[in-house]
């Protein structure tokens, strides 16, 4: 879908992006993770030509983006900014309708689509005629997302989209983000410096440092097969938390008990260990049933069994 080849961007002598290559598959969610100055934002902005590369090539669906007029290219790519970048002199409705206006949609079509998005993003219709400064930070960010999604672009670029939000709002929006069906049909590249966020939202993570990709892999790969010390150190502080979040119940399937327990709670095996453990804590169940949809099998586990399975899994990973 998106193919980046030997892409470089030099600002005078500084190599902000240094011969990077990666690919993003259709409907994949790729996270560019790194500290500030790692070149991740520069990388992102070259995809919609907000920044012109010094060398290299980007293809979207096989077409070189340099062959397209930048305005036309950008209208086909959704873009969400950290500080939302909403137009303060436009109402919410006008803000969302910026791209349809540029694409010369008729009024009815625009109205319908704006209403639809508003509903999906849990914004009230009363907000339509409000100005951005009358909304909360979370609401503003949702409007920013709606603006990026309105023309249903195949590609969505997000530059630290939740960076300006407080923790409570952020985790709420994370949950909505994952549940939003619109986003499941998109190829997304998101920039963040927040490790938690990267692991929670990303199908794949490119960990970047000094303009280069240090490791490109799934969250589990980064955790259990780090390429070098840099990757290990980068994840060190939140390691346990991340591990629980990135290991799925299906990954530890072989160590779970075969019999089913009493009780009506059935979890999907696609959930992370972390989500499974939450059921112990809040529902006060000793044992939960887990259904593996792929092989149509049901197993069960108590808290201690789950911990032991996780331990076995880790041992196995480190031996491979």
């Amino acid at each position: 879908m998106i193919k980046v080849q030997q892409l470089s961007k030099h600002f005078c002598d500084v190599k902000a992006v240094d011969e990077i290559s990666f690919e993003v598959a259709e409907h994949e969610n790729l996270i560019l993770l790194g500290t500030s100055g790692s070149g991740k934002t520069t990388m992102l902005k070259m995809i919609n030509r907000l920044i012109e590369p010094t060398g290299g090539k980007i293809e979207i669906e096989g077409k070189n983006i340099m062959d397209q007029q930048p305005e036309i290219l950008r209208r086909g790519i959704g873009y969400v900014l950290q500080n939302n970048g909403l137009f303060p002199h436009y109402t919410v409705a006008e803000n969302i309708a910026v791209v349809p206006q540029l694409l010369k949609w008729d009024k009815k079509k625009t109205e319908k689509r704006v209403g639809e998005l508003l509903e999906k993003l849990h914004l009230s219709k009363d907000h339509l005629h409000a100005y951005p400064n009358e909304l909360s930070g979370g609401q503003q960010q949702r409007v920013g997302l709606a603006r990026a999604l309105v023309a249903d672009p195949a590609v969505l670029l997000m530059d630290e989209p939740f960076g300006a939000l407080d923790n409570v709002t952020r985790s709420k929006i994370h949950a909505e983000f994952k549940a939003l069906d619109e986003l499941k049909r998109k190829t997304i590249i998101m920039v963040t410096h927040d490790v938690q966020e990267a692991f929670e939202l990303g199908d794949r993570i490119c960990l970047m440092d000094q303009g280069r990709i240090v490791q490109n892999g799934t969250p589990a790969e980064l955790l259990f097969k780090p390429k070098n010390k840099f990757v290990k150190d980068f994840l060190k502080e939140q390691r346990l938390n991340l591990e629980f979040k990135s290991v799925k119940l299906s990954d530890v399937w072989q160590w779970l008990a075969r019999q089913t327990a009493k009780g009506d709670v059935v979890l999907s095996a696609d959930l992370s260990l972390w989500a499974g453990m939450e059921h112990f804590r809040f529902k006060e169940k000793d044992v939960v049933n887990i259904r593996h949809g792929g092989i149509n099998e049901m197993r069960s586990a108590g808290f201690e069994q789950l911990m032991s399975a996780f331990y076995q899994y880790k041992k196995q990973q480190s031996h491979e």
Partner: peptide
């Protein structure tokens, strides 16, 4: 605000 200008550019305005 540069963020607003960048947003306008990224939306595909000339």
């Amino acid at each position: 605000d540069p963020a607003v200008k960048e947003a306008a550019l990224a939306m595909g305005m000339n």
